[in-house]
Design a protein around this nucleic acid. Sequence first.
DNA 1: TCACGGAATATGTCGGAGTAAATAGGGAGA
DNA 2: TCTCCCTATTTACTCCGACATATTCCGTGA
Lengths: 255, 255
Amino acid sequence: MTEAGITKEVEGAKAVKEPRGPGRRLHGAIAHKLGTDILSGKYAPGDILSGEVAFAEELKVSRSAYREAIQVLTAKGLVASRPKAGTRVLPRDRWNLLDPEVLGWAFAGEPDVHFVRSLFELRAIVEPAAARLAAQRRDKADLKIMKDALGAMRQHTLTTEAGRAADRDFHNAILHATRNDALMVLSASIGAAVNWTTQFKQRSRALPRNPIPDHARVYDAIAVGDADAAAEAMNVLVDLALEDTRSAMEQQGEG
Amino acid sequence: MTEAGITKEVEGAKAVKEPRGPGRRLHGAIAHKLGTDILSGKYAPGDILSGEVAFAEELKVSRSAYREAIQVLTAKGLVASRPKAGTRVLPRDRWNLLDPEVLGWAFAGEPDVHFVRSLFELRAIVEPAAARLAAQRRDKADLKIMKDALGAMRQHTLTTEAGRAADRDFHNAILHATRNDALMVLSASIGAAVNWTTQFKQRSRALPRNPIPDHARVYDAIAVGDADAAAEAMNVLVDLALEDTRSAMEQQGEG
DNA sequence: TCACGGAATATGTCGGAGTAAATAGGGAGA
DNA sequence: TCTCCCTATTTACTCCGACATATTCCGTGA
């Protein structure tokens, strides 16, 4: 039954789907392939993806599947299609880089060091301000989540998956405590970026210093409602991360 | 010819397309309708959009068109479809609120005051930091754009479209001068949000004080490379905007 | 050299078939 | 008799191929 279920369309999906991906749909797999190709620079802005039929038969899929993938890419601002002009890659400033899926495509290939630096700069901007807002709002439920995450961080080190999960929970709780929808969405993007860069950072250098006390200082400041202290303590944390990224960037080349 | 060209599918598009929309595609119109319905709360998170066929025949469009629209919504994290469970509205924190199109849907109906405040808070966080980075990088071409926009702002007032365009150009140039891709994407979102709220602010109160001197102070600080002064000057600007939004919010109710 | 018309091509749209998953029903074991 | 597990059916999402349409390009004529 299962072997019989592997029809030709699934074989086509296997051809374009990357191995680590979960049970993706066929058009999702095509979108992933095209997205990574665009993000990696294989297709430059202004370039035209030659017609539907050519791509569809090259990828051994029907035009509908290809079309669905193009719709996804269009929704994310990567391409635009016009009736006769074909599907054209849009300029970079039209791309929705904060989209989690686009972020995943960007980090699927070679992570562009310039872009990684941009992301960590954004984090260095947003998170201290978020800590300030969290200290001003001071939601009890979120405070408890932070405290639990802090406790989990004490038990596990940052080298384990549980430790990294606790770290993520702590930062996400702070973003959540701002009661700011826009910041919460950003937290998803930033968190994803941090995740994807974690592996890169891990092989570039060992995990430095012990971040627990710094995290505790952030929590204490938020708990007592000291906005300035919270922002400053978080500033120390993200500056450390930014510095790590900067050195890793120089190590990879392209100063 | 033109009347003959109006076939049933175009009539269907007219049925769901809002009047002000430009030459949108059919599935784009459906996505707009469903998107605004979801953003306005007509469909709550966890709610199920009953089957393809029901919606397709209710909207008088084919299933493909409906499916394309669902693909767009899925790409933006608004919904998720599973073979039997139907198409389900995802929780809010999965939504890609920073997507320009989603932002447009959010402001198509009643602009949620809480969300507007979030957006302006984000702007108040990002723009001073952007001014600081711009002062550190100090790109000559972007500096010229800022200067031109400043000159245009002197000639037109903020009550005219040209004046508002100059204001947008000025702020966008600062974001662009950061050489930070993530910030540049955010600028598109924030700029769109500011645009959509402009009409709301205009009828709520007259344009206050003359912002030209403050903008000039930001420009001067960036031009001489004084990062702290640039951040502080921009802080004054965005705090003013945040204050305006706050008062407009209270005026509308829901303090 | 410019304008108009025809042709070609790619997009947009439609209806049908297949397949995967969730639910409900029945049977067996405790 | 109640509970748990297995199976079958229903459901609707996914994929496919073909048709209609709009736009662009090129050629011809003025």
